[in-house]
């Protein structure tokens, strides 16, 4: 029955999560400033599960780059979007937690304590994997199962007037609660030169 408790995550990203997968009913926080790659990382956590037929909702990603999401492996046939929930974002996210198996939420600003508690509880009750993308880890006021903080990044393939954007290498800091996760920083391709999002091995 163990398989039912988790949702699959690409083996390329397994190193970022305890047990190498997303546990149903838990909250994962991905943080990073706009343009840091945090949205790419958050969305790629859902890709494998969507390909396996699990339903995903993206709430509050205002102008989603749907093509980029498809490139990162998200199965668009299993994804619904609520790009602009406006003031109702917490209600909308709660409704989605009632029906989907994975929800990625991008709140407009710091999440009030009450809303975070309601969403965490709803995710646990409904056994949904909730991924919250925030600009700053402090914008999610509760301890998360795992917090992935996207830090310094550098683009490759682009020069002073030549080449093109081909790959981005980021430092991702991993923290978990109750010491279940070893705190560390790992390099992650967001995406790699081959187009996949993966933990950079070796070098």
């Amino acid at each position: 029955m163990a398989a039912e408790r988790v949702l699959p995550v690409s083996t390329d990203l397994a190193d970022l999560l305890p047990g190498g997968s997303l546990r149903r009913g838990t909250t994962t926080v991905v943080s990073g400033a706009p343009g840091s790659g945090a949205v790419s990382l958050g969305v790629s956590l859902l890709a494998e599960a969507s390909s396996a037929g699990h339903w995903c909702a993206a709430v509050g990603i205002a102008d989603p780059g749907v093509l980029a999401m498809a490139e990162m492996g998200l199965d668009l046939r299993r994804a619904v979007f609520v790009p602009r929930p406006r003031a109702d974002w917490a209600d909308v996210a709660a409704e989605m937690l009632d029906g989907m198996e994975l929800v990625v939420l991008r709140p407009p600003s710091r999440v009030p304590h009450g809303a975070a508690r309601v969403l965490t509880a709803r995710a646990r009750e409904r056994r949904v994997a909730l991924v919250v993308i925030v600009d700053d880890p402090r914008h999610w006021p509760l301890p998360a199962e795992v917090t992935l903080e996207v830090g310094a990044s550098s683009w490759q393939g682009i020069g002073m007037g030549d080449g093109r954007l081909s790959a981005r290498r980021c430092e991702v800091s991993i923290r978990g609660r109750h010491g279940k996760v070893r705190e560390r920083t790992v390099p992650v391709w967001l995406p790699s030169p081959a187009g996949t999002v993966r933990v950079a091995g070796g070098s």
Partner: peptide, 18 residues
């Protein structure tokens, strides 16, 4: 849905302004 070839190769931007 297979991505069609575009003018600018992947990666595509994760935010596309409406």
């Amino acid at each position: 849905p297979a991505p069609w070839p575009g003018k600018i190769p992947a990666p595509s931007p994760m935010t596309v302004l409406s």
